[in-house]
Amino acid sequence: MTGLPDRLTRPLIDENPITLQILGICSALAVTTTLATALTMSLALTVVISLSATLISMIRNHIPHSVRLIIQITIISALVIVMDGLLRAFAYEMSQRLSVFVGLIVTNCLVMGRAEAFAMRHPPGESFLDALGNGLGYSLILIVVGTLREGLGLGTILGVPLAPMLGLDGFTTLALMQRAPAAFFILGLLIWAIRAWRPAQVERPEYQLSSEEEDA
């Protein structure tokens, strides 16, 4: 049995939705060119996933199996529209920079995944913690990737130049870091590092070559 605090902490590293389940990659690539966009996106997704999981869990016993996806999507998209509206009202600049990606939270497998796999079968409190944990796990990866990409690519953190902070005159920025492939490289390295540290996450091969079986 998993205790309630574990519901919140396990998705941070051990069951991280991005690095273990490889979900939500699209937005992780698109919004991590700067730390500020990564933080805003993290906040938006964490709020949406927590609220949607709680709401869906509250009515889970009355959701007919045949229409459960429609009902989940309706709840999630309503929350996303409200979130998008809030950003446009109070963080207009940021909402312009995030363009469609807040809207695309609707199709983020992470949100649907937690609703379908967890909130449909667990009480609201537990679902809320699980979703919050997953949102924070997603945020953690976005923040790491965003920090590296902005730091190395633009030489700033949250728009503040890094070089003076490090006592340097300046350094050559890596333009590649601002492009999409860099996010893949960083995610790949992160997954490698986490799996080296927690070997339990390494997937067993689905099949082995027959020669190896003979050798064994």
Binding site: I59, P64, V67
Partner: peptide
């Protein structure tokens, strides 16, 4: 929950509440 009327009813109810929000 397997009553088709409930499937329609719940969908309409959720859609209505979501639209209101």
């Amino acid at each position: 929950n397997d009553d088709p009327r409930k499937a329609v009813g719940m969908t309409v109810l959720v859609a209505f509440v979501a639209a209101l929000g």
